[in-house]
Design a binder for these strands. Structure first.
Lengths: 142, 142
DNA sequence: TTTATAATTAGAATAATTATAATTCCAGGT
DNA sequence: ACCTGGAATTATAATTATTCTAATTATAAA
């Protein structure tokens, strides 16, 4: 360690997320590719770009980025949480056979937010639909 | 194997779940009350009815009951999975402040299953909607 | 530069879950 | 009844996932 790496961040405004080098590296991993990596997978990839990064920093960064609205945490069934690049609102399909997680957008989902809020008495923030079924691969293999 | 072709009672009933005393105790815990207990909470409650039951049996039973379609596993955000009695299809609302998980049913959700299957190319099995927002309690407290 | 604040790191600690191996339970057959 | 085989249960160990702590380093402000 002991390498002095200064990052000058210009025009930082208090409302904007602070992207340190580590956080940027983590964000880049989540954004690259269309997978939904676990924290462990993010750690492994981030290490290639930044060998000194620690597991704790990956978790800290993921939490920070999640709170900043730059990534989304997706928990499905059992196992580790997965992280999704935050693009627009979207829905998820999960394969009941192999666990594959796929994004798709169903315009009709947002139309249910009002009814969902009324039925649950929650003040709504977001909605999404989850489809459980067989992915194309497992469907053929069956 | 050689002597008889007739099906045993066990074979005939193999499609039905085998509810041992322990599994019944676990099932009763999940069914009683309208909470969504974690495995640890199920263990604690099941112990009152059956002091000798072990944590491993609770996990084994929950997995068994889940595969038998008698309970459902719900993973939300981070922390432990929660278990839901399997009644009818329903949707979930999760409080972004305190983590409260509430069931509700939105008839419109099932209407989206076809479109969701088409968009994702999955063979559909089930759908459900998740609303994230503030529960009535947290809404007032804010 | 000095000071204050915040981020990063390594590793320990905790939480959640699954696996292993020994024992017990129970149904069916002799 | 006794024996036997397979499944279930148990206690415990092991694994996996996540969070916490304390020391260090970086950044921004004064």
């Amino acid at each position: 360690m002991g390498k002095s790496d200064k990052l000058s961040i210009k025009d930082v405004q208090s409302a904007e997320p602070v992207l340190t080098r580590q956080r940027k590296a983590v964000l880049d991993v989540v954004r690259s590719g269309d997978t939904h990596p676990t924290a462990a997978e993010v750690f492994e990839s981030a290490r290639k770009a930044m060998p000194g990064i620690s597991f704790a920093t990956v978790y800290n960064s993921l939490r920070y980025l999640k709170e900043a609205g730059l990534v989304r945490e997706v928990a499905f069934g059992s196992g580790a949480s997965r992280y999704d690049r935050e693009t627009d609102r979207h829905d998820h399909a999960i394969c009941s056979a192999c666990g594959t997680l796929v994004d798709f957008d169903l315009p009709g989902t947002v139309g249910l937010i009002g009814a969902a809020a009324r039925a649950s008495r929650f003040k709504p923030e977001s909605v999404h639909l989850t489809l459980v079924g067989l992915c194309p691969g497992c469907r053929g293999r069956k």
